[in-house]
Design a protein around this nucleic acid. Structure first.
Lengths: 127, 127, 127, 127
DNA sequence: GTGGTCTAGACCACA
DNA sequence: GTGGTCTAGACCACG
């Protein structure tokens, strides 16, 4: 699990960390129950302040992606809530579709890209 | 074309304006070539500082969604660049897919949501 | 709205700030829609670091007690979600009742204290 | 007396132990004079470090809920100090009431929840 | 050892 | 002007 952070990006570092870990969980690179590096480790290996890493972990915890155990550090949440996409996710998906449409990308090309993204994710059971 | 802005949101106002106009273009509510309100009009009708509206228009122009004509104001760009999704869009799509997967949303449910979003967009030709 | 913070307490400062503001909202000392001091103001007047105040405000925002407007700072949320107590609140209430019972406080005395606390809160309509 | 501990919770484990024992005493599940398991037993049965259990017991003793006899281990204190709620308890009760009020919960609903919590406790005499 | 908290001071984005 | 982010280094509670 290597994180690539862009210090010059306008997206905050703690968000980049959060995004990459979510990507790792989604793709299966980080298995459910797997331990994440400690705050200090990640801070050192990325050259980022530990409070910034702390903020990313706190965000992931509040979003329900990870659990923070006082003894063993952070772990990927084993059994995430199953079900339907939340309104916020649907909103962002619509915006993405609108951008594609406004750029002249055909509906089929867009859906093909969706399929490509979905196939990179870990397969859960028969899904 | 009515804009709904949430002053308490953590997404910047100029981004909200930009997003809603992109949504309008994508869904067809704003037709290619259609004139947008002037910066001053939009600023007045929304109660937002005109510098903020200006920033949104400049962003839309730099992204290629609109054309700014000094005489006629802003218009929806008639023939946007056709083709494939850019890397930035693909990146955001992957993050969305990862969030869905990490939340336990099945691949099929995710793709169904994608189809739902795509169908809200204007049909161009046979797509 | 004066905050009294105990630097020697084991409850974190940002929590103390959060608690006192919640108390202010509950009792009506802070009216719905009323503006809170800015982060910097509160930091200065209390002698606390602004990041600590920031954390308290972020917590209050995430809990739905306040709204943060990029232009005007923080405001008490005008129309909080109405309804039933959440499970976390009920849990704490039970613990409180258990502590009282274990200390030999009679049920009636405990309920009397509850009534006393409730009567300090702002009256909403006929409640 | 079964303890349910959540290692991922942000409330310290020794506090969780303390809380559950207080709940047991308050509800009557643990009768006055009843013996508690030894530190070592409780540590083994819960998989928690014995220092942590020790801390919980020391806290319960300092709060007056239990008595620690070197020969017979810990016992629920038979005759707890009778009387009025202490200031710390009142403080937490007020905060609870304020949170309820700030969330739009009516005074009557709050008091109803108080009654519900009180009725779960053991009845002492006619109370 | 872990995460949680706090400071003092800085820079940036937004409006 | 506002809040948001980040740093470097420190201390503490927990286990």
């Amino acid at each position: 699990m290597i994180l690539r952070l862009d210090m010059a990006s306008d997206v905050p570092i703690y968000q980049q960390i959060r995004n990459q870990i979510v990507l790792g969980i989604g793709t299966g690179a980080l298995a459910p129950g797997e331990s994440l590096p400690t705050v200090r480790q990640l801070a050192e290996s990325t050259g980022v302040n530990s409070m910034t890493v702390n903020k990313a972990y706190a965000l992931l915890k509040s979003e329900g992606y990870i659990l923070i155990d006082r003894r063993n550090g952070a772990k990927v949440r084993p059994q995430p809530s199953d079900g339907v996409p939340g309104p916020e996710l649907l909103h962002r998906l619509e915006l993405l579709a609108a951008e594609a449409a406004a750029q002249g990308i055909s509906r089929e090309t867009f859906l093909s890209a969706c399929r490509g993204a979905a196939e990179k994710m870990r397969a859960k059971g028969g899904n």
